[in-house]
Design a protein around this nucleic acid. Sequence first.
DNA 1: CAGTGGTCTAGACCACAAG
DNA 2: TTGTGGTCTAGACCACTGG
Lengths: 233, 233
Amino acid sequence: MRQTEVSSWQEIQSEVLERIRTRKWKPGELIPNETELAEEFGCARATVNRALRAVADAGLLDRRRKAGSRVLTLPERKAFVSIPILRKEIEAKGQAYSHEVLHSALKQPARETLERLGIAKGTKALELHTLHMADGFPYAYEERWINTNYLPQAANTDFDGLSANEWLVANAPYTEAELSFSASNATARQAEKLKIEKGTAIFNTTRRTTQDHHVITFVKLWFAPGYELLMTV
Amino acid sequence: MRQTEVSSWQEIQSEVLERIRTRKWKPGELIPNETELAEEFGCARATVNRALRAVADAGLLDRRRKAGSRVLTLPERKAFVSIPILRKEIEAKGQAYSHEVLHSALKQPARETLERLGIAKGTKALELHTLHMADGFPYAYEERWINTNYLPQAANTDFDGLSANEWLVANAPYTEAELSFSASNATARQAEKLKIEKGTAIFNTTRRTTQDHHVITFVKLWFAPGYELLMTV
DNA sequence: CAGTGGTCTAGACCACAAG
DNA sequence: TTGTGGTCTAGACCACTGG
């Protein structure tokens, strides 16, 4: 028979997952320590360590020095989500991407926005309103603020060619991001931009990215009806 | 050249992130190989490997045997999302959780549901409608199907005490899950359950979990207005 | 204080894919 | 064919924290 060609830490990981799944190791229970498992599997402790770390990262084990590894009672499985670049997302559907900058101004933001950008009162920032389109139809409407105190070069950039979304990804890699997703009824203004009826349910995203505690940008997105965010675990 | 005197893999990771951020290593560029970096940092190759693996996991590097490690042009940063247990989510807000099973029946699902559950025509499954409440107010309305062919014990379980959500987490750990999020206008029925006005925008989730390719459950959730899904990177 | 996981090392061999 | 990352090992010391 053909060997399954998996590295040993992955095989150990599978075995561990299996024991948790089948309740051989019950929720709340301590599992054998790394040394014991290394003996059982006939491998180095480092290999067991790698396997258990992976299982713990998946949210199924609680690992503590001295206390050992315990099977979690209510595992919080974690999913990966990638922050989308709209152009790619649209092109992945086989549609043509385009965008239009509807508004661009360097101005003093309202107090709420000042706080979100973490800048002082009296400071200016770049405000952008952009409509993203798929095959010419409105796909998402975006309202964005860019912290030009931290990113002065953004003030002199033309976002008609490359969208702010992509320009930032390429020129101001963030270290942290906060995302939120919600639903709301389209306001008259949003409805007009997206060419839909007022009150239609739309999917919203807000995102704030920072670099070493300096806010880079704060953006709100409203998606045209039918939008669906998918992810797998 | 002067050694950079970093010791742990995390410090190396920071240094690598810094070099990517400051464009010392530009997007699309090949970075030195592991052996060279190990020399520069004065550590073992395994330590560099661990650091680079972490950076690659974060979506910033493309690592290939023989080809080397390359800085990605458009990094797709990945966020962790944990699949929520509604009770915990509500309690975390300092509110009291309760739920009510509005409907429970073992019956033959419609064709569409049969497919989603991956079961044969003529088979029965458990249908549940549940209202989740926070401080007595509707929080989310749930429509769920449980694959009782694979999980026969679910048919004899009373979900009035422990919600199906938690019972499944505790009794049928899944190996894979598919999630989707969207927005919609409340239908008359949904509005009635959530005690809101028809047409109000609500946040929807659907989830399908499987265990070794056997579908465990398929569930749709409609959240009361104001719900927000948060995540950080 | 002592047991457990966290990390590092130096060296080795392997798997993969670019040229 | 051969360079690069992927992994394993045996042993060591460290860091945290439970008892």
